[in-house]
Nucleic acid binder design. Sequence first.
DNA 1: TGACTATATAACTAAATAGTAATATAGTCA
DNA 2: TGACTATATTACTATTTAGTTATATAGTCA
Lengths: 114, 114
Amino acid sequence: MAKSKTTAAVMPPEALELVAARFKVLAEPMRLRLLQLLESGERTVGELVTETGAGQANVSKHLTLLAETGMVGRRKEGLNVYYFIADPMVFDLCKLVCGSLQKQLAQKAKAFGG
Amino acid sequence: MAKSKTTAAVMPPEALELVAARFKVLAEPMRLRLLQLLESGERTVGELVTETGAGQANVSKHLTLLAETGMVGRRKEGLNVYYFIADPMVFDLCKLVCGSLQKQLAQKAKAFGG
DNA sequence: TGACTATATAACTAAATAGTAATATAGTCA
DNA sequence: TGACTATATTACTATTTAGTTATATAGTCA
């Protein structure tokens, strides 16, 4: 009985792990790049390989992970597989982070004497 | 000249790495737990060690990382160091992810036949 | 001063994972 | 059917990092 803080609705550990896992998916530059490319329209694996310059196996693995977590969807068409954004929330997340980063960098710049 | 997609403002690779690094900080359950505890008010390292049940060195390392990335701030008071939320944006991020997760889980539950 | 406490840091181990090369799968077309 | 193409998967290597133990730092108080 010595705690004075309001104990805000504590998320159970399993929930925290789920949330952390989602952030982890977004914690790779290559996956962010793929999402960014898909933002302007669906693309085949081959197109993404060309546009990123990454290896085919690597791109495929990243796309599989993005699809497993529901961030992108897949659509087969003959030999090709088209990937597309399934959960646009990822862009909201990116915008928030970018805004925060910009604020911090601007502050640092000012501190240096702009 | 065979590309029909609108090439949405491409972020340079360095920017993507910065954003990814931010997500990576949030990609650990223990750090999310610490942030969640701090949401209801500042706390000393010792208090966080007690409340999480984690090791002191471990908590200290996580806090150092959170502070380096500007998500929390520190304030010394005698022997104690108080940590507090410095960028509330992290909670906006968490709320977005939680909402998305809930939607997905609800959908899965329905698919199973609720 | 010296004993004590809170926090930080260093060195280490174990686990996770991004990237790659090779291979498997599945669809197309002659 | 068999040659060909796009994608997925497997096995591997190298890197990163969470957690731990031991130690260092810095502040308090007698």
